[in-house]
């Protein structure tokens, strides 16, 4: 469904080129949760923001149903729902109005947007807060509104960037249930997280990033089988630690050469 081909993103910081992502390729399928894992600074959020079209890649392409998304960004964005790490809700509107206007931005008529907003308020248990302002909501409820808003136009692809960071455990589990329900409804979900238990519980496919490069990308079951490990945590530690050791050896090798 979504094919990421040799994507690279470079930034210039203080006249140095920073490679946030380098030659990353992976595929996201319908009705599956694809977890993007990595330590801080691995490039998970950069990759999800590139897929969400917040920034353009320096190199590479993203294909949706075989066609570059950059050929018609508006068309691609109409099937996309993006839920960033920090909920970026409209502070001047209530919860209900946030959902109502989100529907209208995507071309729903007032009547359809009203029906959809009511439906989402009900699905996400937000009815008691419908007329509350965003500032009055707790972090967990803001995250729920953010996910609900991302779903208002029935997207085919949902990007969740660290959706459960800083949430209480019971709210986290409620969000997991929501994600499972969405996956079962046929939506492709890209889940960026550094909680390995979360990825273990939700993901069908896993991509592990380290320092902007892709270490592995496969189904969770296949990765476990290939590396003969039962837990994703063990697999993650093995791959990331191995990568860090390689880096350290490379650095010390360069040091010896200089010496």
């Amino acid at each position: 469904m979504i094919e990421i081909r040799h994507i690279a993103k470079y930034y210039t910081a203080r006249s140095h080129i920073v490679k946030a992502l380098d030659d990353v390729s992976l595929t996201v399928h319908k009705g599956r949760v694809h977890a993007l894992l990595g330590v801080n600074g691995a490039g998970k959020s950069t990759l999800s923001s590139l897929i969400a079209t917040l920034h353009p890649p320096t190199r590479g392409d993203i294909l949706y149903e075989g066609v570059s998304i950059y050929a018609d960004l508006a068309q691609y964005r109409s099937i996309l729902g993006f839920c960033p790490q920090r909920p970026n809700l409209d502070q001047y509107l209530t919860v209900y109005e946030n959902l109502l206007f989100a529907g209208k931005y995507h071309g729903l008529s007032h009547t359809n947007a009203t029906v959809r907003a009511q439906q989402l308020l009900s699905n996400f248990h937000l009815k008691p807060y419908a007329h509350a302002t965003i500032a009055a909501l707790s972090g967990g409820y803001r995250q729920r509104v953010s996910i609900a808003r991302a779903l208002v136009h029935h997207p085919q692809l949902l990007i969740l960037d660290e959706p459960t960071v800083g949430l209480d455990p019971h709210i986290r589990y409620q969000l997991w249930d929501i994600i499972r329900t969405l996956r079962n409804s046929g939506i492709a979900i890209i889940l960026t997280t550094h909680y390995l238990d979360e990825a273990e519980a939700l993901a069908d496919d896993v991509s592990i990033l380290s320092k902007g490069t892709l270490l592995v990308s496969d189904t969770l079951a296949s990765l476990k089988q290939t590396h003969a490990l039962e837990k994703l945590e063990a697999l993650f530690l093995k791959l990331v630690c191995h990568e860090e050791e390689k880096e350290a050896q490379k650095d010390s090798g360069q040091g010896n050469t200089r010496a």
């Binding site: 969400a52 079209t53 917040l54 960004l73 508006a74 068309q75 964005r77 109409s78 996309l80 993006f82 960033p84 920090r86 970026n88 809700l89 409209d90 502070q91 931005y105 995507h106 071309g107 808003r149």
Partner: peptide, 14 residues
């Protein structure tokens, strides 16, 4: 702070 602009940037609009 709020980054609502990032939401607008993901809407179907140039």
């Amino acid at each position: 702070k709020h980054r609502y602009i990032e939401y607008i940037a993901t809407l179907p609009i140039s």
